[in-house]
Design a protein around this nucleic acid. Structure first.
Length: 472
RNA sequence: GUCCCCGUCGUCUAGAGGCCCAGGACGCUGGCCUUUCAAGCCGGUAACACGGGUUCGAAUCCCGUCGGGGACACCA
């Protein structure tokens, strides 16, 4: 507690920001914000085959959309720069050289083909693969080959243990580990080495990551020890599972894409709220603002059981935020969704009122935009709605309604509703018989806010014109 | 297969030995409200994986079984 924590989110830029990554980033961010610490963003771009600059951008965009700002990292710099691993190769080389000199690591000349061959043999024998140490005691280079650097596991078996902030004590036998590759021949580090060198170099005090990394913690711990470095604390977060109960992955779960949710009209507030409750809780609280998260967050209430993605709850939260955020704010965010549907409502004074009228009937901005469209442009008519409500009797009622409506002034729900009510009474029919034909005539569908409100928002001229058009 | 982690309603979870014949939320569902669709309000449904211990007492501690997931690369 004495020194503020330094935490980091270290994604590899091999695709868009996914939900699991976003949640890891969020927990790191919360930990840093709560405790006046620093949130570092480091890009682990050491997989040159798959890393792309587009992915880096996609990840930064995703984090920004969620409002997870980083104190150090790409585009903002910081005292431990650079923050891209491929810009830090000299550091890894130096650490690796030292380990080799101290015989805690060694040069390995085995080829990938040879290793692949051995791996197959192990597989056939149904034994877990482990590097066999072919080069462990080699003293001379193999001509014509370049060497990778391997970590030398302890000769005698021992128990490697650490105290996880979420799970508690976790241990493993070192004999279950093998001499893993730390550095490729071209000097680019592999995860278990690069992460350690950087976490130490960047003075990270707490490593927060997903449970899929528990097993890689053990070799990393041995690297810290070999280098004589103090180890950070670890907190392994429970996994997020897809509906099939398997780890949420880009390959099989489209909902793993953070930006897909944005496209689907989900608000970042809702996504964050949903994600934070997957694995963390604060009593019975369900609706949790960003400020409250920062205030309440702590690892004592992070659970250790995996959570399943639950789209209905996300939608429920989304509607909650749609209903409670200031309407001007929601209106602003709705604009691009309207634009996609050919509606330019920017600056239209009715927009915030339309938002208020629609937010309790929309779960997403997409739904809201669709319901909002008829208020700004002539709608296409839903044939089923027309057939049902604008049949002969419907049209007769619509004509009468039009006559009753035309003298109404001023044009407001408070004046419109009594007129329609009176009509339904004089005709001896329910309000539905009166309102539905009008609703279909002006919005093209059977669903809209209360009829008086709908007509008021639409305006008198537009209302009467649409009724006339429907009557034609 | 080996190793690691996990196991409370369908789902997210509260629960840190008696407050629990288990609470909240989403979903589903009955009702109310109602001019549509919603929203809202009231009610219902549904869980401590199983078996042994420890204890006066266990969802909570220990062991085992079963189940689920994760990791086993010159990916991260």
């Amino acid at each position: 507690m004495a020194t503020p924590p330094r935490v980091r989110f270290a994604p590899s830029p091999t695709g868009y920001l996914h939900i699991g990554g976003a949640r890891t980033a969020l927990f790191n961010w919360l930990e840093a914000r709560r405790d006046h610490g620093r949130f570092v963003l480091r890009i682990e771009d050491t997989d040159r085959e798959r890393s792309t600059v587009e992915s880096v951008q996609a990840i930064l965009d995703g984090l920004r959309w969620l409002g997870l700002d980083w104190d150090e990292g790409p585009e903002v710099g910081g005292p431990y720069a650079p923050y891209f691993q491929t810009d830090r190769l000299a550091t890894y080389r130096a650490a690796a050289d030292r380990l080799v000199a101290e015989k805690k690591a060694y040069l390995c000349y085995c080829t990938k083909e040879e290793l692949e061959e051995r791996r197959k043999v192990f597989e056939r024998q149904k034994r877990p693969y482990k590097y066999e140490g072919t080069c462990r005691n080699r003293t001379e280079p193999v001509p014509g080959r370049t060497a990778v650097v391997r970590f030398r596991m302890p000769d005698s078996d021992e128990t490697v243990t650490f105290e996880d902030r979420v799970i508690g004590k976790i241990s493993k036998q070192s004999s279950d580990l093998d001499d893993f590759v730390m550095l490729r021949a071209d000097g680019i580090p592999l995860y278990n080495f690069g992460a350690v060198v950087d976490d130490h170099g960047m003075e990270i005090t707490l490593v927060i990551r997903g449970q899929e990394h528990i097993n890689s913690t053990f070799p990393q711990l041995l690297v810290y020890r070999a280098l004589g470095w103090k180890t950070p604390d670890f907190a392994h977060l429970p996994l997020i599972l897809g509906p099939d109960r398997e780890k949420l992955s880009k390959r099989r779960h489209p909902e793993a894409d953070v930006m897909l949710h944005r496209k689907n009209g989900i608000l970042p507030e809702a996504l964050l709220n949903f994600i934070v409750r997957l694995g963390w809780s604060h009593g019975n609280e369900e609706i949790i603002s960003r400020e409250q998260m920062v205030q309440w967050f702590g690892f004592d209430h992070v659970g250790s059981t995996s959570g399943v993605w639950n789209p209905e709850k996300l939608l429920w939260l989304n509607q909650h935020y749609l209903k409670t955020l200031p309407e001007a704010d929601v209106a602003q965010r709705l604009l691009p969704f309207l634009a996609q549907r050919g509606v330019d409502a920017a600056g239209d004074p009715r927009l915030p009122r339309v938002v208020v009228a629609l937010r309790e009937r929309s779960k997403t901005l997409v739904e809201m935009a669709e319901l909002a469209r008829p208020f700004f442009v002539r709608p296409e008519m839903d044939p089923k709605a027309v057939a049902k409500h604008l049949d002969d009797t419907g049209r007769v009622m619509l004509r009468k309604a039009r006559e009753a409506l035309s003298p109404v002034t001023p044009w407001a729900a408070s004046g419109i509703d009594p007129v329609l009510k009176a009509l339904s009474e004089s005709e001896g029919v329910g309000m539905g018989k009166v309102a539905q034909p009008i609703r279909v005539a002006v919005t093209g569908s059977t669903v809209s806010p209360p009829i008086g409100e709908t007509l008021e928002l639409l305006g008198k001229d537009e209302t009467l014109e649409r009724i006339d058009a429907a009557l034609r």
